[in-house]
């Protein structure tokens, strides 16, 4: 074994594969953006997100990574929703990038327009991101989103998925999972919470557009998330990344557990992380330490009712969904496979 270069030895890291934000045995250019002292802080302090907001975290992670990938040549269009409301209430904005909010359902189209403007002005080095929550993406913004994909416009659309309309007070969206309590799917009746066998997977729908890049990411795995954003910014055309962002308010979880819950969602198989290029699945992020689905659900009051004896069938269904994800996306590492 050869000795590591002197510069790398000086790094305090605890094992080469460490999953912490910083501390990696990597060249500067491959380090996490969030570990750098001069990171862009695209979404700065003073915003009005709730304590422990996963979306605020996910947005800074993603946009900072995109800023690095583009050399700070970035413009973002934002759908109406929490992210918009908590970042730009007059007279304060928390964004440090050129940013526009137009409407709830048109972020993708606005971004397409910006990209077209940049092309027309001969400034194609300026890259465009559209972003929004799951409601603004999977429901009301879906038409525009599909249009952007269809035209293969040079836009990266990032959906911060917290699985319901949080800004309006936690109502069901087409990204709300089965059994989950929302203000419009209350845990009453024989099938409490959101109905099973409803909803849609926009990442898979995005793949069906044969766009160059689609990925899912989670706020708990910064290395994976930044890698995907960087990869997305490395290609042109329409790209889609969905970031899993727990919402303490809407999910009934502890603000301090936001990252932990995201980790549990992925490690239980409830939220598969994968990548696709040109319509084909190209990779999955394997589960590192598999945990029971129940452990994930127990962190959240929105699923509290599934642990009542009468609702055991719902718990079974949720477990089955995780098992199905694990099988479908081949999420478990094989013996000897390096993670």
């Amino acid at each position: 074994m050869t000795q590591l270069p002197e510069s790398q030895q000086k790094v305090k890291f605890y094992q080469t594969g460490t999953l912490t934000v910083g501390n990696r045995l990597l060249d500067e250019e491959h380090r996490n953006v969030q570990a750098t002292m001069d990171r862009s802080n695209s979404l700065d302090s003073g915003h009005r997100a709730c304590q422990g907001c996963g979306e605020a975290l996910g947005a800074r992670f993603a946009i900072d990574a995109a800023i690095r990938a583009t050399g700070n040549q970035l413009i973002a269009a934002n759908a109406t929703g929490c992210l918009e409301v908590f970042t730009t209430p007059y007279p304060e904005t928390a964004w440090s990038i050129p940013w526009i909010h137009s409407l709830f359902g048109n972020a993708a189209a606005v971004a397409s327009g910006i990209a077209a403007a940049m092309k027309a002005k001969g400034r194609e080095e300026v890259r465009v991101i559209a972003q929004g929550g799951d409601g603004g993406t999977t429901d009301i913004g879906f038409g525009c989103l599909s249009g952007t994909f269809d035209r293969n416009d040079d836009v990266l659309y990032i959906c911060y998925n917290n699985q319901a309309y949080m800004n309006t007070g936690v109502q069901r969206s087409s990204a709300t999972p089965g059994a989950a309590r929302t203000a419009t799917t209350m845990p009453v009746g024989a099938e409490p919470g959101n109905a099973f066998n409803t909803g849609k997977s926009v990442p898979l729908i995005a793949m069906a557009h044969n766009i160059p890049y689609v990925a899912t990411a989670s706020v708990h795995d910064l290395h994976d998330l930044e890698m995907k954003v960087t990869k997305a910014m490395g290609v042109h055309g329409a790209r889609y990344i969905e970031v899993f962002v727990p919402c303490p308010l809407g999910w009934g979880s502890k603000p301090g557990d936001t990252v932990k819950i995201a980790r549990m969602a992925v490690e239980s198989g409830m939220y598969p992380l994968f990548e696709a290029a040109d319509g084909e699945l190209t990779g999955v992020t394997k589960i590192r330490r598999r945990i029971p689905v129940d452990d994930y659900l127990k962190q959240q009051r929105r699923f509290a009712h599934v642990f009542k004896p009468n609702n055991a069938h719902q718990l079974e269904q949720l477990r089955a969904i995780a098992a199905h994800n694990i099988k479908r996306f081949d999420l478990l590492a094989r013996d000897g496979e390096e993670l």
């Binding site: 605890y14 934000v21 910083g22 802080n41 605020a56 800074r60 990252v259």
Partner: peptide, 21 residues
């Protein structure tokens, strides 16, 4: 392999995971 139990080893996690920067 030491985990630096109880003492900051400058892993940048707190710096990174703060939603409020």
């Amino acid at each position: 392999r030491c985990m630096s139990c109880g003492n900051c080893f400058e892993c940048d996690n707190c710096y990174g995971v703060c939603p409020d920067n």
